[in-house]
Computed example of a mutant assay.
Amino acid sequence: MTLTILFAPGDALWNNYRAPLIDALDAAGLNAVLTREADPETVDYIVYAPGSALTDFSPFTRCCAVLNLWAGVERIVGNPTLHQPLCRMVDPALTQGMVEYVTGHVLRYHLGLDDHITRQDGVWRPEAPPLASQRQVAMLGLGALGQTCARALAGLGFAVDGWARTARTVPGVTCHAGPEGLQNVLSRAEIVVTLLPRTPGTENLLDADRLSLLPRGARLINPGRGHLIDDDALLAVLDSGQVAHATLDVFRMEPLPAEHPFWAHPRVTVTPHIAAETRPHSAAQVIVDNIVRGQAGQPFVHRVDPATGY
């Protein structure tokens, strides 16, 4: 039997992913045709990415699964025509990139590197930072990315609080859950990292009330989703000094408009959604591994729960 795999994203992604996907399919011994066009009733699997022109999944009656190229699925999970299993991307290279971004910026804040770079005024200030064990870091979100980053920070010696909607256990991390747990975590966090998915329950999670819980001078790092933070509330606490600095990699509108106040704010670092990038060769292997599982009758990995949105 020849499998038909429809690649639904656009031209740029096709050019990047075509060869790695074909190589991974061949290495797995799958008899498959990877194509950008096919009769819907002949398609066995769909490779998808946000922004694809494909929005109606109902004609794909034979399709076993929709395999997303990105970790985020908020732009597809609510599609009423989607009745096939949906799997998000959990790519080892993407995870490694996120760990490097998060640990790099946590260390930047912890060591006060910005001050050393900008304050070259000829004054000798022998002021050493505290040890990592004396620095309280909060990881909001304990999914695959959040847990890996939290463990990496704990491994460097940081005192790490982790928070999720439901109870989790992560070695080396003090875990909290629910609204009261979030309040406790924020009230003592010197550095906050947000790695939550975008769902109705996380929209504007960090609003004016919750941002006010932070100790004065806290730092914020958001490589998760732009909608997790109320932009106006964040600007207010930055202006007041309640939050000393924010490093933001994701935004409600991307690219971030040139006129947005984040660009010019002296207490904001903007990075252009580069914290974690899906790499074609490693992501192709994740896609093909799930196809192999599907053909063997095994459960798909990284399958999205439509009720939770991730």
Score class of each variant (00 low, 15 high):
225 R>V: 15
184 N>K: 08
283 A>T: 05
304 V>E: 07
114 D>K: 10
77 V>S: 03
272 P>Q: 02
9 P>T: 06
67 L>C: 03
6 L>M: 06
305 D>N: 11
250 V>W: 01
291 I>G: 04
21 L>Q: 07
269 T>G: 15
310 Y>M: 12
113 L>Y: 05
125 R>A: 13
159 A>P: 07
86 L>N: 00
253 M>Q: 14
227 H>Y: 07
13 L>Y: 07
127 E>N: 05
18 R>H: 13
300 F>E: 00
285 Q>N: 11
49 A>S: 08
91 D>R: 01
251 F>Y: 04
206 L>F: 08
120 Q>M: 11
35 T>I: 12
289 D>T: 03
183 Q>A: 10
105 H>T: 12
275 A>S: 15
223 P>S: 05
171 P>V: 06
294 G>D: 07
181 G>Y: 11
275 A>I: 14
266 P>C: 12
148 T>S: 10
48 Y>L: 11
217 G>W: 07
26 D>N: 15
71 A>Q: 10
28 A>P: 02
129 P>I: 03
221 I>P: 01
247 T>Y: 00
117 I>E: 13
64 C>F: 01
161 D>Y: 14
120 Q>S: 06
48 Y>E: 00
164 A>F: 10
236 A>V: 13
220 L>W: 08
215 P>Y: 02
124 W>H: 09
20 P>I: 08
246 A>D: 04
272 P>C: 14
202 T>Q: 03
64 C>W: 04
294 G>N: 02
53 A>I: 13
204 N>R: 14
207 D>A: 05
186 L>K: 03
237 V>M: 06
293 R>F: 06
3 L>R: 11
297 G>H: 11
23 D>W: 05
294 G>T: 02
299 P>C: 13
66 V>T: 01
43 V>N: 00
121 D>M: 15
148 T>A: 13
144 A>I: 12
98 M>H: 02
110 H>W: 02
104 G>F: 12
101 Y>W: 10
294 G>Y: 01
247 T>V: 14
309 G>A: 13
43 V>A: 04
12 A>C: 09
274 I>M: 12
303 R>K: 09
255 P>H: 14
103 T>V: 15
168 R>V: 08
98 M>F: 08
112 G>M: 09
289 D>I: 09
122 G>Y: 01
175 C>Q: 06
256 L>V: 15
231 D>E: 14
47 V>E: 00
275 A>P: 14
49 A>G: 04
96 Q>E: 10
62 R>V: 09
90 V>I: 12
131 L>F: 03
127 E>S: 06
145 L>M: 12
78 G>H: 04
94 L>T: 13
77 V>N: 08
110 H>G: 03
192 V>Y: 03
171 P>D: 13
105 H>I: 14
287 I>W: 08
100 E>R: 10
29 G>L: 13
154 A>E: 00
279 R>K: 10
72 G>L: 04
